[in-house]
């Protein structure tokens, strides 16, 4: 059985600022990271590999420099790493993205072997839509299990999976026949740390790149052209700038008093 993990290279959003004039993310000089939720998806796939001996493929759609993300996956132990990169894929929204990813999964199914599980992070930290995973599931006609925080049971013989979904204030145990697409939350596991020999091997490995000549998708369904969603504006909400009150280090008691007075005056302390 093949497990496919969809991962994305995202800017380290804690370091991202928004250009107030153009309303776009200032990406210059911002380091890229693997979308944090995806690292949990990757980890779970590798654990299933350790347990059941299945193969794991990591795929990512992105510009050529997203290769680094796939090398990280190789360093962690995936068997195949494929970058889906082509100018015509660019500017995609979630619909167009899931079209490309689904096509890649289909190709893996025919080239490498039967796909039983597709794992995605519950959402990316740059887009925050949480739509790509479900999009893939609909396109491939897989069962979809979102917000998984635990795989309760995976029975390969009877091709069934039972998982726990983390919902607000409760958990739901769901069972579904394979193949399934799962999106995962952080609580699912603790990602492993890469071993140096594997990092070095990954650094030298070449990541396979599939462009649209390989996937042969209708250009109307991918990239900017295949994206019905438009982002009209991005902005950071105005926030009143803070103020430094007293000197808590030289005079902790006095400063605490000032703070309390201030909060009282604003009616922010329940008395």
């Amino acid at each position: 059985m093949l497990i496919v993990v969809c991962i994305k290279q995202v800017p380290d959003t804690t370091q991202v600022q928004i250009d107030p004039v153009t309303n776009t993310l200032i990406r210059d000089g911002i380091p890229f990271i693997v979308n944090p939720y995806d690292t949990h998806a990757l980890e779970e796939a590798l654990r299933l590999k350790d347990r059941f001996g299945c193969k794991v493929a990591a795929i990512s759609m992105g510009p050529p420099n997203a290769e680094a993300t796939l090398k990280k996956a190789l360093a962690l132990g995936v068997d195949h790493a494929i970058l889906l990169s082509d100018r015509v894929f660019g500017g995609a929204d979630t619909l167009a993205t899931s079209n490309v990813l689904s096509a890649a999964i289909r190709k893996l199914q025919s080239d490498v072997g039967e796909v039983g599980l597709v794992l995605c992070g519950k959402q990316t930290i740059d887009g925050d839509t949480a739509q790509v995973g479900p999009g893939i599931a609909s396109r491939l006609n897989y069962q979809q299990l979102t917000l998984v925080d635990k795989i309760v049971e995976l029975d390969l013989a009877s091709r069934k999976i039972r998982v726990s979904r983390k919902l607000e204030g409760r958990h739901e145990i769901v069972e579904a026949p394979l193949p399934v697409m799962m999106t995962v939350v952080r609580e699912l596991n603790r990602p492993r740390y890469p071993k140096v020999p594997m990092r070095l091997a990954a650094a030298e490995a070449t990541v396979e790149v599939w462009n649209n000549q390989v996937l042969k998708l209708d250009e109307q369904k991918i990239g900017l052209k295949g994206s019905p969603t438009w982002v009209s504006k991005i902005f950071s909400p105005d926030r009143a700038s803070g103020e430094i009150l007293g000197d808590g280090y030289a005079d902790p008691d006095g400063t605490a008093e000032m703070l309390i007075e201030k909060l009282l005056a604003k009616d922010m302390l329940p008395i």
């Binding site: 380290d12 380091p31 492993r192 740390y193 071993k195 140096v196 020999p197």
Partner: peptide
């Protein structure tokens, strides 16, 4: 332990990632 086995007290995972990433 760290480089070959990736085995270390779990508190260190964040440290290693923070150091490398930020």
């Amino acid at each position: 332990l760290v480089e070959n086995e990736a085995e270390f007290p779990e508190e260190l995972l964040n440290l290693f990632e923070n150091m490398e990433g930020r």
